[in-house]
């Protein structure tokens, strides 16, 4: 038997950690909530359409309700009137949840430094990945999404429950 040939048992068994399996399953089936606000929404739709297919990452099904979604892609400008709505929607998403801030408006207010624009959505909700661009090309969005997948793959179960673990001891 050569070194590279698998033994009989290895044909049907993979050994791994529970954490790795959970991370892999979470990263490869992230379901975003439809949350296009402005111009970046058009590029998000283009990313989901035929040329830059988003479905091949497992993220093709955009859920209409945040209660069934994992990911919120803030695509567009966040305004003062919209910020409480974003907060409510974020709170309605069940854990584990991630946020991608797509475009310069969601990152830092973009070209709109005015009285009604919040300078960045991270003043409203915590953000995992920032994607610059105005609007970012669909390839940029896919790159940012892959970075998020990397983040999910390397995250550990202890991240979100750190406070509870520290309390319990």
């Amino acid at each position: 038997m050569g070194i590279n040939q698998l033994s009989t048992l290895e044909h049907i068994l993979i050994t791994t950690k529970v954490e790795k399996v959970m991370n892999w399953s979470r990263a490869t089936s992230v379901w975003p909530v439809t949350f296009g606000l402005a111009c970046c929404a058009i590029e998000m739709m283009a990313a989901g359409a035929s040329r830059f297919d988003f479905d091949r990452f497992g993220a093709g099904i955009f859920r209409a309700t945040p209660r069934q979604a994992d990911l919120m892609i803030i695509a567009g400008t966040v305004t003062y009137k919209m910020a409480p709505v974003i907060k409510t929607l974020y709170d309605q998403m069940p854990e584990p949840k991630w946020v991608i801030a797509m475009g310069s408006c969601a990152t830092a207010g973009g070209p709109f430094d005015s009285y009604h624009t919040i300078q960045g959505v991270d003043k409203v909700i915590p953000v995992d990945v920032f994607i610059p661009g105005c609007p970012p090309r669909p390839e940029s969005l896919i790159y940012g999404f892959m970075k998020l997948q990397d983040k999910i793959m390397t995250s550990s179960l202890a991240d979100r429950y750190k406070d509870i673990f520290e309390e319990v001891g």
Partner: peptide
């Protein structure tokens, strides 16, 4: 309306 009012 007004949820995307950016003050252009």
């Amino acid at each position: 309306i007004g949820y995307l009012h950016r003050g252009v």
